[in-house]
């Protein structure tokens, strides 16, 4: 009794999904691009948001294969922004490292100048 109800519910949801959403191929392309870009600036699985993006894109792809277009679109959209956030975080982190290096150099120069006669 329970199982048929569930199946029916899923079928209805599935149908609704199909009816409302076209295949989000363009969104997937955009998301893939965002991931590529994040990777290009040095994002790895170590960056939490990048890992999220990878996982979501993966699931979006399999959703696409099983024609769950609504899920595919939402996951791909989230993956895109996860990737963009990952990219931004990596860039900020890098700029912080650069700042530290430069600050150290400036401090060293100041110290050297201070001991000049």
């Amino acid at each position: 009794m329970k199982i048929p109800t569930l199946t029916l519910a899923l079928a209805v949801l599935g149908l609704a999904g199909c009816a409302n959403d076209p295949a989000p191929t363009e969104q997937l392309r955009v998301s893939e691009q965002a991931l590529e870009q994040a990777k290009a600036v040095g994002a790895t699985d170590q960056v939490g948001e990048f890992k999220l993006a990878e996982d979501k894109l993966e699931r979006a792809r399999s959703n696409l294969l099983t024609q769950q277009f609504r899920d595919a679109r939402m996951r791909a959209e989230q993956a895109e922004l996860d990737a963009r956030l990952a990219e931004a975080r990596v860039l900020t982190l890098k700029s912080e490292e650069q700042l530290n290096v430069l600050q150290t150099r400036v401090n060293r120069l100041r110290k050297q100048l201070a001991v000049q006669p």
Partner: peptide, 18 residues
């Protein structure tokens, strides 16, 4: 998505400040 856009915006402003 909204939350992510906000976070991205904040991250961009951090980068710009740096």
């Amino acid at each position: 998505l909204s939350q992510r856009y906000s976070e991205i915006a904040r991250e961009h402003s951090r980068l710009a400040a740096n």
